[in-house]
Design a protein around this nucleic acid. Structure first.
Length: 370
RNA sequence: GGGUAGGUGCCCGAGUGGUUAAAGGGAACGGACUGUAAAUCCGUCAGCUUAGCUUACGAUGGUUCGAAUCCAUCCCUGCCCA
């Protein structure tokens, strides 16, 4: 049996954009999909019910963070992450690979694994393919990720090559460690901004035959054109029968381009983080709710949005809440941004199903600023 | 009425003769944020004809080459005593 199964429903003949469906032990969700990020076993400020109401079918959580606190054994004792956080739909856990990248000077990489200095108390922690996979088995997410190194940008060819080869060796070790059959392990393509390395990475990972493939190491500071070029080059080589996941991407323009190149899954902290910092996402671009121009604006964040915040509250009110640092303001903003992306993905999917994705993309880009 | 401590930029608050258009907060204004060390971080914050000038540390006058800083008088505020 396979825990994760991808069903291709329709593909845009011009671009390759795909509408599909992914089946997991905790339900099925339509793709392309955006997965809200709940690093510490919660999507910041949102309850599971609220996430379900906006249509979220799968959320993300994080190995590194849960490994530090509360510890994977406690989550296991609770009956797994689904039970622990009261989320009965699908969960994907990241492996901690991104923390290898983002924690920069707090970590040391060797062939064996990565030694971290905990960002909480400075204590030494060790994560390896085996440890990361065991932790993820304890957590019990439906989709788990191989432990990788997210190659930084810029990186020279030799470093990117060695790092990518190691990531693939680590992927093999992750696969060898996984024993649960109700979890699907995704491999992560790296290779930096080098096409030959991307190709090498894809080929090596395909031999290991994962139930899904992620494209990592993008959106790490490189120019967008470069990102799209590498993305296109990479996705082209991935199998049609498996889900494709572009890690860490979440602005509307990048999502459209990702879908166009054939990506099915995305995740990003952007909507939730930016919400807490006072920026709302709309079809026209960013709306910085804190700005003075909205002080007397009693209309909703977005006229055409059906989210709870837009149905009931004004820009002026939400601006006030955010400015005085009221939690409800952060919640309304987060709710809006996540709803916006769910809606955005739904509309893209619908466009693919109705053979008008190219037109959809064109129209969207024309009205979207930045 | 007597004593005492003070009056600093939008607010709070450092600063006791030159390196002070004046520390540090806060507010305000703007920006950033892409597998979350993030309800965080960064910038601006007297004005102008901006490598310079003008106006600024309760008010006025004085000492000095030079004052938010020293002196005099006045005004105002807090606290204590009558």
């Amino acid at each position: 049996m396979t825990a994760i199964r991808y069903e291709l429903i329709k593909q845009c003949p011009e671009t390759g954009a795909r509408a599909g469906r992914i089946h997991t032990p905790h339900g099925t969700f339509d793709t392309p999909i955006f997965m809200p990020v709940g690093t510490q076993a919660t999507v910041k400020t949102m309850s599971p019910e609220e996430l379900k109401d906006m249509g979220a079918g799968i959320i993300l959580s994080n190995t590194y963070h849960l490994f530090l606190r509360p510890g994977s054994e406690l989550v296991k004792e609770a009956g797994g992450l689904h039970k622990f956080m009261n989320w009965d739909r699908a969960i994907l856990t990241d492996s901690g690979g991104f923390q290898v990248f983002s924690l920069g000077d707090l970590r040391k990489i060797t062939e064996d694994g990565v030694t971290f200095r905990s960002h909480i108390d400075g204590s030494k922690k060790f994560l390896s393919p085996e440890v990361a996979t065991k932790v993820q088995m304890d957590l019990g997410a439906d989709i788990i990720m191989a432990f990788d190194e997210c190659v930084p940008y810029p990186a020279d060819h030799e470093y990117a090559k060695q790092s990518t080869l190691r990531t693939t060796r680590w992927a093999k070790r992750c696969k060898d460690t996984l024993t649960r059959e109700d979890q699907g392990l995704f491999g992560i393509v790296q290779g930096g901004m080098y096409k030959d390395l991307r190709t090498m990475s894809v080929n090596d990972l395909l031999e290991l035959d994962f139930p899904g493939y992620a494209v990592g190491g993008l959106s790490v500071g490189e120019p967008k054109d470069m990102m799209y070029e590498i993305l296109e080059h990479t996705v082209r080589q991935l199998p049609q029968t498996k889900p494709r996941y572009l890690m860490g991407v979440g602005t509307p323009d990048c999502l459209v381009e990702g879908v166009m190149h054939g990506i099915d899954m995305f995740d990003c902290v952007f909507p939730t983080r930016v919400a807490r910092n006072g920026t709302a996402m709309t079809w026209k671009g960013r709306l910085v709710i804190k700005n003075a121009e909205y002080a007397h604006d009693f209309g909703p964040i977005d006229e055409n949005c059906g989210c709870y915040a837009c149905r009931n509250y004004s820009r002026a009110y939400i601006r006030h809440l955010v400015r005085v640092n009221e939690i409800f303001g952060l919640r309304l903003m987060t709710m809006h941004n996540l709803y916006f992306l769910q809606d955005f993905m739904r509309q893209m999917r619908q466009a693919i199903l109705e053979d008008r994705f190219v037109e959809f993309r064109k129209k969207f880009l024309a009205g979207y600023v930045h």
